[in-house]
């Protein structure tokens, strides 16, 4: 189904705020596909998923977010909300919309960009000589065939070789946290498959997976990239990855820490950046 009009809201979710480059690059890709894009995310656009323990608050958050997207649709003509986060997408589809009148449709960014493949293909001018294993989960296929969509996008990149690998449980790595050993098993299975296949790159699809495996970058000669980084690289866009660097021991510059509040940085951010490797 084609999108209605070319104006859209890119709903990147909450936890993507760790990955500013991915937000910006995603917007650039959507713009190059011909869309007028406004981004929205963070706690003010929470879907409610993280608050299953507080149903009243979660429901209020869902209503507020739907109202904001309805307003963007009515006042700015942004009749499509393009999602990134599979949790947000499923929550909107399954729980938010049955309880709130929506004046917009939704699509996942991988669907939009895959459908715009013919428009994007001429922009993929830089060969990306990588042998890539795509880190896949089996979840979210109930709503969007995301693994196939990302593969179809990456297949258009000159000289990129995509290797088949396992599809692990859950819809993204963070969903596995409730079962001891599940996350470690999923990361290990994926990483071992990449190494055994002679891959030099492991490509993540979602932010939560990227967050987990970024710290392994360089091990076994394998670098960690998100699929958006690879598309951007082929377009000649700056495809930096600050979070990966931080997990590798780099630190944000002092001015950025000062702006964020050094106390909050030390309490909330630093422990995450220094947490043990997943495998």
């Amino acid at each position: 189904m084609a999108l209605t009009g070319n104006r859209l809201t890119f709903w990147f979710g909450c936890n993507m705020l760790r990955h500013a480059e991915l937000i910006r690059l995603s917007m650039q890709l959507l713009e190059r596909a011909g869309f007028d894009v406004e981004a929205a995310g963070g706690p003010g656009y929470c879907c409610g998923t993280p608050h299953d323990h507080a149903p009243v608050a979660a429901s209020a958050m869902a209503s507020r977010t739907v109202e904001r997207f309805n307003a963007a649709s009515q006042m700015e003509g942004r009749g499509t909300v393009v999602t990134w986060c599979p949790s947000c997408h499923m929550h909107m589809s399954d729980i938010m919309s049955p309880g709130n009148a929506t004046q917009f449709d939704i699509a996942h960014i991988t669907e939009v960009l895959a459908d715009a493949g013919d428009k994007l293909a001429p922009l993929l001018v830089h060969p990306v000589k990588r042998r890539v294993l795509l880190h896949r989960h089996i979840g979210f296929a109930t709503h969007v065939p995301v693994n196939d969509r990302v593969a179809s996008i990456l297949a258009r990149i000159p000289e990129l070789s995509l290797v088949d690998g396992p599809a692990v449980p859950g819809h993204m790595c963070s969903s596995l946290g409730g079962v001891p050993g599940a996350l470690k098993g999923a990361v290990a299975e994926t990483w071992q498959a990449a190494a055994a296949s002679g891959c030099d790159t492991l490509a993540t699809i979602f932010h939560s997976c990227h967050r987990e495996v970024a710290a392994l970058d360089g091990r076994d000669g394998i670098t960690v990239r998100n699929w958006v980084h690879l598309v951007a690289e082929s377009m000649g866009l700056d495809a930096g990855d600050a979070y990966r660097g931080w997990r590798q021991g780099e630190a944000p510059d002092a001015a950025a820490i000062a702006r964020a509040d050094p106390r909050l940085y030390a309490k909330l951010v630093e422990p995450e950046l220094k947490k043990p490797l997943p495998i």
Binding site: T4, G99, D105
Partner: peptide
């Protein structure tokens, strides 16, 4: 793209 469900309740 997916058209969302029509609401069947007053809230989530």
């Amino acid at each position: 793209m997916k058209s969302l469900q029509q609401p069947s309740a007053e809230s989530s």
